[in-house]
């Protein structure tokens, strides 16, 4: 039973990872691509890891998968934030279809 649920979770995770990669190609600029990369890949990879844990049970690889899941959830938002901030600071413009950029308005005086 656990094995079937695990395999279903792994397939769902693969589908979401695929969509995340599709988003990386289709979306227009760095910031939108980061959105696709953080969201789809977080849940996609998490369900792959959790599915692996369900299939193999409480063994050496299973425990490692759980640990990876925990660290992944903690570190993905931080790295996305660092990349977005670094990109903006080094002067990469938003896509021309963007509505507002209040961050640039506030930072103009300091730069």
């Amino acid at each position: 039973m656990n094995e079937i649920i695990g395999l279903i979770l792994i397939s769902v995770g693969l589908a979401f990872d695929l969509l995340g990669c599709l988003g990386l190609i289709r979306l227009p600029d760095v910031y939108n691509r980061l959105q696709a990369a953080t969201k789809c890949v977080t849940l996609g990879t998490c369900s792959i890891l959790f599915g692996t844990f369900l299939v193999v049970g409480v063994t050496t690889p299973g425990i490692k998968a759980l640990l990876c899941l925990f660290f992944l959830v903690l570190t993905t938002p931080v790295s996305a934030h660092a990349l977005a901030r670094g990109a903006h600071r080094s002067g990469i413009k938003l896509w021309e279809g963007s509505v507002v950029d209040q961050y640039a308005e506030d930072k103009e005086g300091e730069a």
Binding site: G23, Y31, C40, L94, G97, S98, Y103, A104
Partner: peptide, 16 residues
């Protein structure tokens, strides 16, 4: 996000 990526016209309105 999956919906926005699959949709053929890419319904996004980004900004900060």
């Amino acid at each position: 996000v999956a919906y926005r990526v699959i949709h053929p016209r890419l319904p996004i309105k980004p900004g900060i």
